[in-house]
Structure formats: C-alpha cells, structure tokens
C-alpha cells in the first residue's frame, strides 16, 4: 500500500497527529524513513512532516544548549556553541548524509546507527517531547521506552556544555575510512575534581539495541585519577553487563574482544 504524507504548519498539530496513529512515522531528514518507503516497508502507511523551521533551531542559554530535533549533523558542525559535538556529528555518514540526518532521527536510529545519540547519552542530555504539555525526559528513560511504540514527537534535546572541553571524548570505530558504519562508538564524559574523576558517564553506540551506558566502566573510573592503573581496570570491565549485537559488521564476540582496546585508546587519548 502506498504511503500517505500529511504536512502540518505547527509542531503541536504534527505531534497530535503522530500520537493519534500507530501506523505513522515522523519525517526528519528521511535517511531512514525514505529508505523504508523505497523498500515498501509495510509497518507504516503515513508520513507526518512539519514545515515549522523552528524545529531546526539551536539555542544556547548559559551553559546549556538546546538543539532542535530537526537540526542536521551539518547544522551541529556549523554551530560555534556546539564545537564539543562537532567531531561526533562529523563521524555520521558522508557529507550528503550529514546534510540530511537530523539529531531527532538519530535518537530513533536502530543499531548500528546512533553515534550522535551515544554522545548525548554520555552528556546526560534531556529529550524534550512536543505536545499539549511539552515535557523533558532523561535520555536514559527515553531510550528505555523508545521501541515500545509510544509515538511521541521529539521537539529538541538539551545538553550541558562541558566546563572543561577535554572532559568529553568520542571515538568511532569503523572498518571503512573515512566513512563507515560503526563497529562501535564510545563517548565519555569524565569531569575531574581534585585530580579525580567525579561523575563518570561512558556510553557505547552499536553495543546494544539502543546506545547504552557502560555501567561497570563508569564505576571503575569514578573517584580515581585517570591514570594507567584506573584505565586498565576500566578496560577489563569494558563489556561487563552488556550484550553486544551480532550484525553484518561484527559479531558479538568480536565486539566484546575489541571494546576494551578501543576504550583504552579513547581514555589515553591515543588516537589513530
């Protein structure tokens, strides 16, 4: 059955239409939605889109930045307020994909996609849902409920800008350079206080159905100086509690084998 396209001028109206239908998909940049249309995916019959350009706005208030769900990876790269996220956005696809792929769409992209979302998870972002009463949810809660079919429109995400830019690190591991899909991506936010890590947040992309926290790694690093011994202990528990997927790029076994190595490279900032 061919797909129907509904276009709205106001975000609220699009949000209402989306939540009222189980067989509708919102159109971000379309890199995944249009692929599904081209393949005659039968799991949806309606595309909902919105003309409101404000969905693409990026606003900084103090040390918080709110990124509209419609902002593309190229918009992120071009925005000075988001310099800390530019290396992450640059790791998504090639130039044409980056001109299309939105921050909102990345939140829903199934593994092995979701590199940008892994970074948002490490940064403790808030996902702001549109609707009659707009509300913010922690990205962990958003990702937990994501695939349960509640059709909510994401309006924006809010992130805290790291006080110390070097506290945030990101690494994407892919086999094809410079543009390949992730074997895994690793994002780490490791603020130091008195020379010790305080409040470690480490997240992986492509190591679960959604981006996930590396809880054991966070525990191993918290309260420690970021020295060789602590990094060694963190690498040893790199995949503890995780169930990495097997896909066309890598097996679960392979992902387990190499995660510690890549984590160590990221933490010692030894980049290839």
């Amino acid at each position: 059955m061919p797909v129907r396209v509904e276009t709205y001028d106001r975000i609220e109206d699009a949000a209402r239409a989306l939540s009222a239908s189980r067989s509708a998909r919102f159109l971000g940049g379309g890199t995944l939605v249009m692929r599904a249309v081209n393949e005659a995916d039968q799991s949806f019959d309606t595309i909902i889109r919105v003309r409101d350009a404000s969905l693409r706005d990026i606003r900084a208030e103090g040390d918080r930045v709110t990124i509209g769900a419609g902002a593309t990876m190229s918009d992120v790269i071009a925005n000075r307020e988001l310099a800390f996220l530019a290396p992450v956005a640059r790791a998504v696809g090639g130039p044409a994909v980056r001109n299309m792929a939105t921050v909102g769409g990345n939140l829903f992209a199934a593994s092995p996609y979701g590199d940008f979302t892994a970074a948002l998870l490490a940064l403790g972002a808030t996902v702001n849902l549109a609707g009659a009463v707009s509300r913010g949810v922690a990205i962990e809660d958003f990702l937990r409920d994501r695939d349960r079919g509640a059709n909510a429109l994401v309006q924006s995400v809010t992130v805290q800008r790291p006080h110390d830019a070097s506290a945030f690190r990101f690494l994407k591991v892919s086999r094809v350079k410079p543009k390949g899909v992730s074997v895994m991506s690793i994002a780490a936010y490791l603020p130091l206080s008195g020379g010790r890590v305080s409040g470690a947040r480490v997240a992986y992309g492509a190591m679960g159905p959604t981006p996930v926290h590396a809880v054991a790694v966070e525990r191993a690093l918290d309260g420690q100086p970021l020295d060789a011994a602590a990094i060694e202990r963190a690498a040893a528990v790199a995949t503890e509690g995780l169930d990495p997927p097997t896909d066309a790029l890598a097996s679960s076994w392979y992902r387990r084998q190499v995660a510690g190595v890549h984590l160590k490279r990221l933490l010692t900032a030894e980049r290839r």
Binding site: G30, M34, R35, N38, E39, A96, M100
Partner: peptide
Amino acid sequence: GQGACGTCTVLVDGEPHLSCLTL
C-alpha cells in the same frame, strides 16, 4: 535507493543531498 552508493547525489540549495532519500 538506500543512501549507500551516492550516485543519486544532487545539490539542494547548493549542498549535496541524496535524491533517493529525499521526499
């Protein structure tokens, strides 16, 4: 038709886009 090959690349307002994935 999947975004993978790039041979459908066109410029939209001067910037490269994949026309197979553009509504």
